[in-house]
Design a protein around this nucleic acid. Structure first.
Length: 881
RNA sequence: GGGUGCUUAGCUCAGCGGUAGAGCGCUGCCCUUACAAGGCAGAUGUCACUGGUUCGAACCCAGUAGCGCCCA
């Protein structure tokens, strides 16, 4: 039974043969929450590290983009917790004014056939709260499923009492500072949502429209104007031309007749008209176009509204009562019959604004709304980044930040909705207004403004309102400003800039020290994921099929600053495979007696030294990458360390030692435990479930079961993050040589068709020269080479390096042709190398100008090429001779 | 129209002056008691195009083409 004794001792393990995430995840998550693993303390001595969640829409559901976002935040926070920080991932949701109201209105119409007006404001809002409760629960369940390590006791909602007080407080403060005002302006109006929108809630799409040129007036006094929005002509109050445009000089100051209306409108001269565009004359509709509004103001023109809030024409005349698009065709037909149409370009591609929420074509509309004056706030926000108080990652994103914040328009904050923070302005009977702060009562007989605030107004307060502001709470003292903000780059304008504005204004300090903007999720073909395209992947399905760790690993592994993520089900599978490999590797280490008890061996084996060095390299690499939010690279380093170094080499290389037993084996078991312990720590922030399960098994299964009920058991969530040990260059070099030797022999075997389990007698020469003499048993085990017997008759000789040769007896004919072909190919490569290096070294300019170390490197390469050529030629001769 | 980014192996992407890389896929062999969700070995590229700078360019500069994103 000599053979059996050679096997490593196999111990019992309770770990199953494959990793079954579903069984582990729910149990572990509940345990973490129960043990307060994610709870942050306001009064600890630890340094704070806080990231607030970008609050998802409470009535939405989490998609892959959220999953990516949460994974990255969670990984950062978990790592900082392991590094000893008071780490807080602060959760919450957003009331999402327009979209939530839309959803409930639709449901109300479908179920009860009622409009919100039928129901009335209070009952409608109550109904939205009910709706919110249901969907909130769902979103919380989703976050738990993907493993978000958030402090649930601190969860907030943008419409809860505290945050409502924060909203009212800042409104009052801005109002008193003269930074909130009400004015008649052209705003973006959604005729379906029946509310004002801010410019960022408008999405511009290229639509195929029609550019119609038409004639106003008659004969010499007629003038041609062009438009894509024919219906607005009903609201024209002038035609404008450039003052220097000689074609129209004679008309300036005169009036032309506006068709269908009986009105005569003046021709005015305005420098902002582009004489090159179209006919050089433009119609002016001050109430329905921002540029025209500006012209109207300069020339004191009337600004009549010609449609109502639903987009129905109200201008008296033949088109009254038509929808704006019906009116457009009706007017075209009428103009045509009057012979006023000069030309029609169709299709005419141009950008048309659509409502971000319901895709309806937005109508620019003159309307009285509330605005925030942004000039000062924008400057504060820009300065915080310019001064380096807030750093943006990746740095290229700064440009986008500045281009927005430096050109910001006043922010329209009123919305004609019922779901949201009601504007705290009360109007008196005499038309005066007061702004009511928290705890104040409006004067008798005053009525409150019916409108609510833009949702982003409340989410702009998020990094400090969630911590208790306006009260100076211990949490606020401890965690503000937050460490970092991690969010999608598509939201920089909506949200990041606005948090910067309110944070710098209300707190005197930018709300985060760093901002990391990650990419969007795309499918394998680079398309944006969407339900309509049918290419969407539901993160929860990925969790169900492959586990939460696989989902998180897949997303983090692909998160490269500055570029989008590609996601596909194959990537989830690959990630699942990694988790399973990790599971089995750890399982094997356990069965081999890996331990974390006691000190590392004082005199580790070469192989042990090597893996410890590789681990040290990996720790510093991972740390360096994570500092720069280089998630993909950090994960790549861990992936290769785990799979290539640890699983493929170290676990195999240690098998003989472990089988042998004795002090060397004890030391190796200790190193094995150490390396797995640290690998699991390093991976834990990204794949928390499988690593926790394995780590407890490895380090403290028994301690866990025996822990007193009132004290949380050990957990990887609070284990210390590894610090990099020393790099052992000698061990790295020697093992690299060993690997090269083994791979060369295996390659030869494979080329010669020798079966993997078939042993081959061989004589190895030169190992001592290569300082690998001690490793001969390992080499033999790995390459399946037997000691040469008395009848040893080598059939082939491999020159593996300039020192080591291996003579093999394949006990049969070898495939000379195959081996010769391979050698000729290798010879070709070496000869080419000799040629290129020789050329360089023969170049005076290169020798004179290239840095010494480069020249030296090329010399080394040439020498190596020469040695290779000699070695290969010798081998070829032997083969042929 | 104005910005801005991309184009490297079949696919997804690293590399951003000094020997072209990874993952997946592909080919061959292997169910070797940790793992077939696996092991061993292997093949694969006018680094979009055209010029320029440089001793040297996938990398820097200019232009061209195609694709994408943001803003009007």
């Amino acid at each position: 039974m000599k053979e059996a004794a050679k096997q490593p001792p196999i111990r019992e393990t309770r770990l199953s043969k494959t990793y079954a995430p579903a069984e582990v995840e729910a149990r572990r998550y509940a345990e973490w929450v129960a043990d307060g693993r994610f709870a942050a303390a306001d009064d600890s001595d630890r340094d704070p590290y806080c990231i607030v969640i970008p609050p998802p829409n409470v009535t939405g559901q989490l998609h892959l983009g959220h999953a990516l976002n949460h994974t990255l935040i969670d990984a950062m926070v978990r790592r900082e917790r392991m590094r000893g920080k008071e780490a807080l991932f602060l959760p919450g949701t957003d009331h999402a004014g327009i979209s939530t109201q839309n959803v409930v209105e639709r449901q109300l119409a479908d179920h009860d056939g009622l409009s919100r007006h039928d129901l009335g404001r209070e009952p409608f809002v109550d109904r939205v709260w009910d709706w919110k409760a249901t969907y909130h629960e769902r979103i919380v369940a989703q976050m738990k499923k993907i493993g978000d390590g958030v402090d649930w006791d601190r969860e907030r909602f943008t419409l809860d009492d505290g945050l409502s007080e924060a909203v009212q407080t800042i409104f009052k403060r801005l109002y008193d500072d003269g930074m909130i005002y009400r004015a008649e302006r052209i705003i973006n109006w959604c005729p379906r949502c029946m509310t004002a929108l801010s410019e960022i809630e408008v999405e511009h799409q290229d639509d195929a429209g029609e550019l119609v040129s038409m004639r106003y007036g008659e004969g010499e006094d007629s003038i041609v104007v062009a438009t894509t929005r024919l219906e607005t002509m009903l609201g024209d109050t002038a035609v404008a031309v450039h003052p220097d445009d000689e074609r129209y000089a004679h008309l300036i100051g005169k009036a032309v007749e506006l068709p269908f209306t009986g009105r005569h409108i003046p021709v005015v001269a305005d420098e902002h008209v582009d004489p090159e565009f179209g006919s050089g004359a433009v119609k002016v509709t001050p109430a329905h176009d921002p540029n025209d509004f500006a012209i109207g103001q300069r020339h004191e023109l009337d600004a009549p509204l010609i449609m109502d809030e639903r987009g129905v024409i109200t201008a008296h005349g033949p088109f009254e009562g038509l929808d704006r698009f019906e009116a457009r065709s009706a007017i075209a037909a009428a103009l045509r019959s009057e012979g006023r149409i000069v030309s029609e370009r169709r299709p005419y591609m141009h950008a048309v604004g659509h409502c971000d929420r319901c895709d309806t074509v937005v109508e620019p509309r003159l309307s009285k709304q509330w605005f925030v004056k942004v000039e000062h706030l924008a400057k504060l926000s820009a300065d915080a980044v310019r001064d380096g108080r807030t750093r943006i990652h990746p740095p290229e994103m700064e440009k986008r930040y500045f281009s927005w914040v430096d050109n910001l328009l006043d922010w329209c904050i009123s919305r004609q909705l019922w779901w949201g923070h009601r504007i705290p302005i009360w109007y008196g009977p005499d038309g005066d207004q007061v702004c009511v702060g928290p705890g104040e009562t409006p004067p008798e007989g005053y009525v409150q403004d019916p409108d609510v605030l833009d949702t982003w107004f409340s989410s702009a307060l998020w990094p400090f309102s969630t911590l208790g502001w306006p009260a100076r709470t211990p949490a606020l003292e401890k965690f503000y400003p937050t460490a970092s903000l991690i969010t999608g780059q598509d939201i920089i304008f909506f949200w990041v800039v606005r948090m910067m504005m309110f944070g710098t204004y209300a707190m005197g300090e930018a709300p985060f020290k760093e901002v990391y903007l990650h990419g969007l999720i795309r499918d394998k073909d680079g398309r944006k994921m969407s339900k309509s395209a049918g290419n969407g992947i539901d993160p929860l399905e990925v969790v169900d099929t492959y586990g939460a760790d696989a989902l998180r690993f897949m997303l983090a592994r692909d998160a490269q600053p500055g570029s989008d993520n590609t996601a596909s089900i194959e990537l989830a599978e690959i990630s699942r495979n990694f988790c399973n490999k990790l599971w089995n590797g750890t399982r094997f280490a356990l069965m081999s007696g890996a331990t974390v008890a006691g000190d590392l061996p004082a005199e580790p084996t070469l192989i042990d030294r090597w893996i410890l060095s590789r681990l040290a390299q990996t720790v510093s690499t991972v740390d360096a990458y994570l500092e720069d939010y280089e998630f993909a690279k950090a994960i790549d380093a861990l992936y290769h360390f785990a799979w290539d170094d640890l699983f493929d080499w170290y676990l195999e290389l240690t098998k003989p030692v472990l089988a042998e037993g004795g002090p060397a084996a004890d030391g190796t078991r200790r190193v094995l435990g150490h390396v797995f312990d640290h690998l699991l720590r390093l991976l834990h922030p990204v794949i928390p479930f499988v690593t926790e399960e394995l780590w407890l098994e490895l380090t403290g299964g028994e301690a866990r079961e025996q822990a007193p009920a009132d004290r949380p058991a050990p957990s990887l969530t609070v284990a210390a993050w590894p610090t990099a040990g020393a790099v052992d260059e000698e061990a790295e070099r020697l093992v690299a040589d060993l690997q090269h030797l083994v791979v060369e022999v295996r390659r030869f075997r494979s080329d010669q068709g020798v079966k993997p389990n078939q042993s081959v007698a061989a004589r190895i020469a030169g190992l001592a020269d290569a300082r690998l003499a001690d490793q001969e048993p390992l080499v033999r085990a790995f390459a399946r080479l037997d000691e040469p017997g008395d009848d040893f008759a080598p059939t082939a000789e491999l020159a593996v390096s300039d020192r080591v040769t291996v003579a093999l007896d394949t006990s049969g004919t070898i495939d000379v042709a195959a081996e010769r072909a391979r050698l000729h190919k290798a010879l070709g490569t070496a000869e080419k190398e000799l040629e290129t290096t020789g050329k360089k070294l023969g170049n005076e300019a290169f020798l004179a100008k290239a840095p010494d170390e480069v020249v030296e490197k090329i010399r080394t390469r040439r020498a190596a090429a020469e040695a290779d050529i000699a070695r290969i030629n010798a081998q070829l001769e032997r083969l042929e001779g």
